[in-house]
Computed example of a mutant assay.
Amino acid sequence: MTARWRVPGRIEVLGKHTDYAGGNVLVCAAGRGVTVTGTATGGGRIVARSTSFPEPVTLGGGVDAGLPAGHWGRYLQTAIDRLTLNFGPLEGAELRIDSDLPLASGMSSSSALLVAVALVLADLNGLRETPLWAAELGTDRLRLASYLASVENGSSFSGLGGHTGVGTLGGSEDHTAMLCGSPGELGWFGFAPVEQQQSVPWPADQVFVVVTSGVRAEKTGAARELYNRASLATREALAVWNDATGRADRHLATAVRSSDDAVTRLLGLLPAGYLRLRVAQFVRESEVLVPQASAALQTGDLAGFAAATLESQQLAETQLGNQVPQTVALAADAVRLGAVAASAFGAGFGGSVWAVVPSDAAEGFAEEWLAGYARAFPSEAAVATALVTVPSAPAERLD
Rank of each mutant, 00 (worst) to 15 (best):
L330A: 11
E317N: 12
T234C: 13
L232D: 03
T220Y: 01
T309L: 10
Q292V: 00
E225G: 10
A332S: 09
W241M: 06
T212Y: 11
N228W: 08
G304Y: 10
L270R: 03
V240Y: 07
Q298A: 12
A295S: 14
P325W: 00
L302A: 05
R216A: 15
V256M: 03
L315M: 14
T318H: 11
V256N: 02
W241F: 13
V290C: 03
G273V: 09
A316P: 00
R265I: 10
A253H: 08
D249P: 00
S231G: 11
R247Q: 14
R336T: 14
H251V: 00
D249G: 01
L252P: 03
G304V: 11
F305G: 01
A295P: 00
E218R: 13
S286Q: 03
T318K: 08
A316C: 15
E317A: 14
A223C: 13
P291H: 02
S213K: 12
A255M: 04
A239D: 13
G321L: 05
A296I: 07
L302Q: 07
R278S: 12
R265G: 06
A248Q: 13
Q314P: 00
L297V: 07
G268H: 09
L320R: 06
R336F: 05
W241V: 07
L226H: 15
A262D: 03
G300S: 05
F305C: 02
R216F: 11
A239W: 11
R250A: 14
D301K: 08
D301T: 10
A253K: 06
G300L: 06
S294E: 08
T212S: 09
T318L: 09
F282D: 02
Q281V: 00
Y274I: 01
T234W: 04
N322W: 04
A316W: 00
A244P: 06
R229M: 01
V335T: 13
T234R: 03
A341F: 07
Q323T: 15
L226F: 01
L330D: 04
G273Y: 13
E287G: 01
D301Y: 07
V335C: 08
L252D: 01
L320E: 02
E225A: 15
A255K: 08
S259E: 05
S286G: 04
N322P: 09
T309V: 15
E285S: 05
L337P: 11
V210S: 02
E236Q: 15
L252T: 02
V283G: 01
R247Y: 00
Q319R: 14
A237V: 09
G300D: 03
A296K: 10
A303L: 10
T212K: 09
A222H: 14
Q298T: 09
A223T: 15
Y227C: 12
V283T: 02
A334H: 13
A306Q: 07
A307M: 11
A342W: 10
Y274M: 01
V328I: 15
E287N: 04
P271L: 04
P325H: 09
A295Q: 14
S258Q: 01
L266T: 02
A248E: 12
E317Y: 01
L269C: 08
R336D: 14
R250M: 05
G268S: 06
A293H: 06
